[in-house]
Amino acid sequence: MRSSTSREDILSALRAAEPPAVPLPELPEPGPLPADPVAAFELSVRAVGGEPVRVPDAAALPGLVRALAERLGARRVASAVDLPGVGDVDLQALPDPHALEGIDLAILPGLFGVAENGAVWVDTRPLAHRGVFVVAQHLALVVRASEIVSDLHAAYERIDLAGPGLRLFVSGPSKTADIEQALVIGAHGARSCTVFVVG
């Protein structure tokens, strides 16, 4: 079969061309957590075009999410976070990912946030449709205040990529600067990205 010989051809060409072994370097130590990790994280979220919202008490979250939906004029809301009275779209019940089109606001749990760049680590594996974070018109992420790490080195110390699935960092809303370098928020994905920091 042609493709199997291509594989062998390429691998043997690479082996023949490989330079003498160079050792794999140690990774840099993660930077120290800022004195106020939440404040640093919120600053970064704002810098990447997101909207951080501090939620001191988890009980206040449903009300804040409802207020956000109202402010955005979101009629169809899908929540993967258990929030009483929030969300009228049941992701499990959608037959096909194309049915995600038309969702105005999606609320997803984030596993942790990264202080240096405002990114939130999102695991799409529990979701019925992995693309909800990008197809929905607006996105809200929920992160616990205790789950902020300093930088990406610290992030990858926590990240476990075992098993199949899509996992990703989301840092702010979808954006582009492809027309004359003018920053425009809302290219293909979320037009806004609200990050609720709870606790």
Binding site: N117, A119, L152, P164, G165, L166, S171, G172, S174
Partner: peptide
């Protein structure tokens, strides 16, 4: 940490997706 800062002066790209296996 290097890529987006060097490319566009952002701390990281908006989406950094780790695909393992298909949809």
């Amino acid at each position: 940490r290097l890529l987006a800062r060097s490319a566009t002066g952002q701390p990281v790209t908006t989406y950094t997706s780790h695909f393992q296996g298909p949809i």
